[in-house]
């Protein structure tokens, strides 16, 4: 089952917004057509054992689709969070599905893993189980990378990639992000609630996007590829990253230490993303948020930092 009939129907993928699509639609269009095979699908009804304590509705897949499929004919493991169910948050079952997938990937050693993040972080109603699930996933990501597995995060969902999701993303081999794909630990509302509106005005959407959004993350080198908001663009980004990621070892962690220290030294006193972009040599930094994707990608490829030897 190879050859051209298995290539994703690119036209549909090209016209479908990654941000607006469901987790299932993203996977269906990202992978070669018809190649997705789900593990513990919704018909198994492995729901959260904890939501009933709060009289809340469950979802049959607990908000994450995991399985395997093909990308240009080559096998990949996939996990996609559904950001509309409880904000894509990590609970006990949700997290355990991803941990199991990563442990198998580690044992096999050669099949890359794509994680389609769409999450607000820990699921409040099962906070302890969710927090630990994230710790287990981080460990499993690093064990798999140590065994030679490439783990790629794709970030462009409605819930962004927040809380512990941001830490897991930071453990991946590489990330692709779109403009709506925010990456952070504390969300805007959390910062405002804890530190006041003077520290962060969560209703200032422009501030949120330029502090946490995909363009800033790409320019900073936090993400390696900027994708336009279509499933096809994320498919191409995944293929590009699978082809370019190098081996993981201690030298990479040392390079990461240097990369992050350099970032603190250069930008540690900047008050706003626009100051950072200006310091990077972008002439009209205030115009970056308005740039169309193709112009931004050209700019990022010229000026944006990459992390190819680090991370």
């Amino acid at each position: 089952m190879i050859a051209t009939k298995d290539i994703a129907p690119a036209e549909r993928a090209r016209s479908t917004s990654f941000n607006e699509a469901s987790a299932r639609t993203r996977l269906e269009l990202l992978l070669d057509a018809g190649s997705l095979v789900e593990f513990i699908g919704p018909e198994q009804r492995e729901i959260s054992p904890h939501l009933k304590i709060f009289d809340l509705p469950e979802q049959f897949d607990d908000g994450i689709v995991i399985g395997h499929g093909r990308l240009d004919g080559a096998p990949v493991f996939v996990a996609a969070q559904e950001g509309r169910f409880m904000g894509g948050a990590f609970g006990e079952v949700h997290g355990a599905k991803l941990t199991g997938l990563l442990r198998a990937a580690r044992e096999i050693g050669t099949i890359p893993v794509l994680i389609l993040f769409d999450t607000g972080g820990v699921r409040l109603q099962e906070a302890n189980a969710g927090e630990l699930a994230i710790a287990e996933i981080m460990r499993a990501v690093m064990e798999a990378r140590n065994a030679g597995v490439k783990i790629i995060g794709l970030i462009g969902g409605r819930s962004g990639c927040y809380g512990g999701g941001g830490l897991i993303a930071g453990c991946c081999s590489a990330l692709a992000v779109s403009e709506p794909g925010r990456i952070a630990v504390s969300g805007p509302e959390v910062i405002e609630t804890n530190r006041g509106v003077e520290e962060f005005d969560s209703r200032d959407r422009a501030l949120v996007w330029r502090t946490m959004g995909g363009k800033h993350r790409r320019l900073l080198g936090a993400a390696d590829v900027f994708a336009d908001d279509t499933v096809q663009d994320f498919r191409e980004a995944a293929l590009e990253l699978i082809g370019s990621i190098g081996a993981f070892d201690l030298d990479r962690l040392k390079a990461e230490q240097v990369r992050l220290a350099d970032r603190l030294r250069r930008f540690g006193a900047c008050e706003d993303a626009i100051d950072i972009w200006t310091a990077e040599g972008i002439a009209h930094a205030e115009a970056v948020p308005e740039l169309p994707a193709d112009q931004f990608i050209a700019l990022a490829n010229r000026i944006g930092r990459a992390s190819r030897d680090a991370r």
């Binding site: 993303a169 952070a184 504390s186 936090a222």
Partner: peptide
Amino acid sequence: QRMSKRDELLGLNEFLAHLAKVLIH
């Protein structure tokens, strides 16, 4: 984690992940 604009602007998720990665490694 420190909840601030500066920390998030600089990519706090990468710094926290890096510490965890170094310990796990």
